[in-house]
Design a binder for these strands. Sequence first.
RNA 1: CGGGGUUUAGCGCAGUUGGUAGCGCGCGUGCUUUGGGAGCAUGAGGCCGGGAGUUCGAGUCUCCCAACUCCGACCA
Length: 573
Amino acid sequence: MKVINLVGDRFKERPSEASVDSHALMLRGGYMKFVGSGLYSQLPPLKRICQKIERVIREEMDAIDGQEVLFPVVMPAALWQESGRYISVGAELARFEDRSGTPMVLGMTHEEAAVSLVREYGQTYTRYPFMVYQIQTKFRDEPRPRAGLIRVREFTMKDAYSFHTSQEDLEAYYARAHEAYESIYKRCGLPQVISVASDSGMMGGKVAHEFMLLTPIGEDSIAVCSCGYSANVEAAPAIFENTATGAVERELVDTPHIATIEDICKRFKVGFAQTCKAVVYQERGTLKYVVVFLRGDVEANETKIRNFLKTEIFPAAIDENSPLFAGSIGPVNLPENVTALYDSSLKGLENLICGANVSEKHFTGVSLSRDVGNVEYGDFAKAQSGGICPKCGQTTLAIERGIEVGNIFQLGTKYSESMNMRYSAQDGSLQTPIMGCYGIGVGRLAASVCEVSRDDYGPIWPISIAPWEVELVCLRPDDAETHAVADELYSELQAAGLEVIYDDRAMSAGAVFAEADLLGCPVRLVISPKNLKADALELVTRDKIVKTTVTRENAVSETAQLVVKLYTEIHGK
RNA sequence: CGGGGUUUAGCGCAGUUGGUAGCGCGCGUGCUUUGGGAGCAUGAGGCCGGGAGUUCGAGUCUCCCAACUCCGACCA
């Protein structure tokens, strides 16, 4: 490929809509073009990168006995009604009607399609276990796309579905999938990706892991500890230890215009941890109030609350008609018909300041065990930086940001059960298969690599996914001899089996190099009248680690050797 | 869904008290240049996001709408 024929523009100025560096570089480098919110077209360099990532994924999926299939993007709503998700999933599922008025959906994931594909095939235990996967377009009508390819509405995803006859077999396969994922990230140049325990959310099932690339631009919060523990903040247990202070007398105090924890701390001159915070939700549907009490310095974790209640909740609207007084809600004398949840951060506290459930009044000296009685504590809080690590018990928990570059779930029987998939076991009984599912977003992975592997001038692609392995640069193509030699080298490099992008445009050297940096090819061979005269062609890597000169004679073999060396570094051998 | 910002040439932006639109980059042509986004000359390129209003006259003032974007909420 010659740069002069490469469709797409590379330009100097940072696009105003890009707040994330990788996004800006991929627009500036002619990798993609904005089409609509969360919708992008891919230009040849990005398309090539994604194809290489897909190749890596295919090899790893095939290596764990996966079989590639293809589900339709458009599915009848009836299929999603079988699992119940046509109702339970929100507006991110695109719904429409076909010409005959039949309700349809755009696939945002394919559990239903997978079950319907293998429901008949999997009627006997002899055919288990098996895994099918596809690499295909997904559409999710995200409320807030951001950061270029990091969060989009339409994207290419590898999604895999495995089927098993026992939990043990699922777990064994899950471990293999976990290893395959680690291998994928390593081969794509992201060995630093970690797996963290995650909440399984609406997917159902219990055990789940997310693969996270830790970076400040990530949108997920992850609790990590130096002992090796890591979990999504949604799933990380929040552990607290309170030392007994001894009970004191309870007093009702007037607190006009005092509603926030901050106000209370100022008024009573105490720390946040000596107050009791009330966070109010309502159950979707019943509108029943749920009050979660937490220590004043602790944040509520809605995912944990949702999982505990097994129902959808949303932040409550408190007005004159509600039995609760905003700013003065407390555990003592709580109105009836309100569900109260107590976070374990309050356990053992005996001298709390709480709302009194009377307008503009608070209690001091509240002891939950004395004043409320038998309180059951649960984990409804977000793990905090400096909190207690659930694994090693030290107060060394840190909260970091990460991009989720993949996830794996032990689904269980949620879909096989609801969609009535059964097989005959060896003993003749009818059983429900156990499923796992495994996803990776291809474009997000490409953008993640760009985010962590770049400099001020452009991306630095790992050779395994680079759009081209080598960029051949001819400076001064107006010099006939130089141009002729460069043309020869172009043919010879291609003949040697290398992927070459060749820039022989008559532009200033600065412009040529700037555009080459934006393309980010790992190896660059530069030819100019100057170095040709000295028989010292320049061979450099994009990251500037290797900088050497080669003769015209051995230029091709040296370049090929450097390419092999870079592959070896990634594959570890 | 809540709060902010933006919308003028392909891109980045300016546009004063209201008087019919400009700069830089990029693009075409010619000449000169040539190792980190070169110089001169010349040219093309605009429904000033959409609609309604005020006015003799609106990019500019008023109202409505839309799109994009950032923060939050939400998120398999």
